[in-house]
Design a binder for these strands. Structure first.
Length: 578
RNA sequence: GCACCUGUAGCCCAAUGGAUAAGGCGUCGCCCUCCGGAGGUGAAGAUUGUGGGUUCGACCCCCGCCAGGUGCGCCA
């Protein structure tokens, strides 16, 4: 519908140009938007206000000229000029009804696949090896995964990239410790507590000189490609990712083992990149290190910032890895667009790496690099989030607590669900609530970690959306669905129908901006409108006549399908009962 | 010191430069003789940190200031 109006207005502009009212080269940037208030119609444009100056007339007069030039259409009931020169379009309710009927027949709910699919690399989750995922990892993981689902739904080719922290000097220490553990216990090692593992290794490293010495030797051997160290390193990666995969599965995150593309993958590219930058004069030796100076970034002394590509000892830092990574994604993965879901602290560093990658021609201008940054998770004291003992809260602990709270809630209010059903409800509601708490926020600011707000089941939460869905399902347990012509007889029906038609826009916005909260907001508003409709408009009551019932059932059906599809794009499952 | 991010009601949070700044939590009311009360419905609560500027129109864009967070050469 929006496109239809846009076309009408473009025709109108062409008409004005033909009549000499506007110059040929003028390309006005006007908008057509959904109105917030029904009294301003369903869609509104600011076109008159945008072009009135060029025409030398009052905006209201121009608006009237535009209205007069728009041909009559059975899709539009009424067009009005309002306020400072808005043009408000009132859609014909027959047309809206027929669109809803069409949606009920379309598994994609009217959302079209893109005509020019892109290859999009999405970098998200990125846990560290030999560490357990903590609560803050949920942001990148859950938001990235939702954007992945949306992009795929729209027809793009998506490459999931789990940029696991699997490289660095700490691996000497970890290998030495793993070796010690294996020597001490006869059977194969099963590390259930990675946090404790890492901590103990660190303690030993700090206190035992002999151990530290061995650890340092192992780093060198690992980087040199030594078989033994390589194998031990692999074990560490394996151990960690098996545990992380359990979390992904539990959270319904679509990452798989084959999506792991860790930092170590780019290792073999680093020396070549350093050499290339040096040969082309982009990098120079400074105090023994190979450095690229960037004019657009200033260091502490106010001079162009030096970004170290190669350390004076010949080693590499993570900036070089990120340059290589971007290069790889362009050259090997043929990315058209690369999205990084990484916390805001890395922003400067990423910009530097990308600036170098662009200058070197590794990433051409037409490939877009986007940092989808978000703030840190803070404790109630406003400091980086730590537990009383100084550690972090494990993600698995948060998920356990979520399930416990849902279990308690079910017990509290009593439930006639079977044990099997209950288990499913507990799981889906708990995971939904936790994920939605993060997905629904756009905030690039830091935010306070709070059990209660993260595990709320009231208001703008996933359980509310899941609940709306179960109410719809409940309707269809009582009546067989036969799609019928949709006749919008009351304001509640009209508002609901109009919102349903905007599903595609919400989905497209998420893909464009990498912000799933736009879809959350949409689904929450949709659920609210459904609840209101449902209270006001009986569907199954005996005094409702058949035509009205068929119409309302179709609205219920399309709402249910939209909720189910929308939630699935957020990685959240619906339930038949709860 | 420099750079990046952020500032909206007691708390959380939304708003492609558009109309009366939208919701949620909490607070105070009302609603199960009717399809599921994890609900509906109403009320109170905001000089959008601050001072300028651009614009027909600014939470949004530009400049100054204040406050918070983060980052700034050999960790990742």
């Amino acid at each position: 519908m929006k496109q239809f109006i846009q076309q009408l207005l473009s025709d109108c502009i062409a008409d004005f140009k033909a009549k000499g009212l506007l110059s040929q080269e003028f390309a006005p940037r006007f908008t057509v938007e959904n109105t917030k208030d029904k009294k301003n119609g369903d869609l509104a444009t600011n076109l008159a206000m945008v072009i009135c100056k060029k025409m030398g007339r009052k905006p209201q007069d121009v608006a009237q000229l535009i209205i007069d030039s728009i041909p009559a259409s059975d899709r539009i009931a009424k067009i009005e000029m309002a306020g400072p020169g808005f043009i408000n379009f009132f859609m014909s309710s027959d047309h809206v009804g027929s669109q809803i009927y069409a949606m009920s027949q379309d598994p994609r709910l009217g959302v079209k696949q893109v005509s020019a699919p892109q290859t999009v690399v999405v970098d998200y989750s990125s846990p560290n090896v030999a560490k357990e995922m903590a609560v803050h990892h949920i942001r990148s993981t859950v938001i990235g995964d939702s954007v992945v689902r949306v992009l795929e739904f729209l027809g793009h080719r998506v490459i999931r990239a789990n940029h696991v922290g699997d490289w660095g000097t700490q691996f000497g220490m970890l290998i030495a410790y793993l070796e010690k553990m294996e020597n001490e216990s006869a059977s194969d090692l099963e590390v259930s507590d990675l946090e404790a593992f890492y901590r103990s290794a660190k303690v030993l490293y700090d206190e035992d000189e002999e151990f530290a010495e061995r650890a340092r030797k192992y780093v060198v051997r690992l980087q040199g490609g030594d078989d033994y160290c390589r194998k031990m390193w692999q074990k560490l990666v394996q151990m960690t990712m098996v545990q992380n995969q359990r979390i992904y599965d539990r959270l319904n995150v679509s990452l798989r083992p084959e999506n792991v593309m860790g930092e170590s993958m780019y290792n073999s590219m680093l020396a070549g990149i350093a050499e290339d930058l040096e040969n082309r004069g982009m990098a120079v030796t400074d105090q023994g290190a190979l450095v690229v100076f960037l004019d657009e970034f200033r260091g502490k002394d106010g001079n162009p910032m030096g970004v170290i590509i190669r350390k004076s000892d010949g080693g590499f830092l993570y900036t070089t890895t990120d340059i290589a990574c971007a290069k790889y994604r362009v050259e090997q993965l043929h990315a058209d667009r690369i999205l990084y879901f990484i916390d805001s602290r890395q922003h400067d560093h990423l910009m530097q790496a990308w600036a170098i990658a662009r200058k070197a021609g590794y990433v051409p201008a037409e490939v877009s690099l986007e940092h989808e940054s978000f703030g840190m998770m803070l404790g109630k004291d406003g400091r980086p989030f730590k537990t009383r003992s100084g550690g972090t809260v494990k993600l698995s602990e948060l998920l356990d607590e979520a399930e416990k709270r849902v279990t308690d809630l079910l017990a509290e209010r009593g439930s006639d669900l079977s044990e099997e059903e209950k288990e499913k409800v507990v799981h889906e509601v708990a995971m939904g609530a936790v994920k939605y708490a993060d997905l629904s926020k756009n905030r690039t600011t830091d935010y306070i970690f709070d059990w209660d707000s993260m595990l709320s089941f009231d208001g703008n939460t996933a359980p509310y959306l899941q609940y709306a869905y179960t109410r719809i399902r409940s309707v269809f347990r009582k009546t067989e669905f036969k799609p019928g012509e949709v006749v919008l007889g009351c304001p509640q029906e009209e508002k609901l129908a109009l919102k349903l038609l905007q599903f595609g826009e919400a989905v497209e916005q998420v893909a464009l901006k990498g912000m799933p909260h736009l879809l959350c907001t949409y689904l929450f508003e949709l659920s609210g409108l459904f609840m209101t409709f449902y209270e006001a408009c009986p569907v199954n009551r005996s005094d409702v006549d058949d035509a009205v019932r068929a119409s309302r059932l179709t609205l219920c059906k399309v709402t249910g399908d939209t909720l189910k599809t929308g939630l699935s794009l957020l990685g959240i499952n619906v339930l038949e009962k709860m």
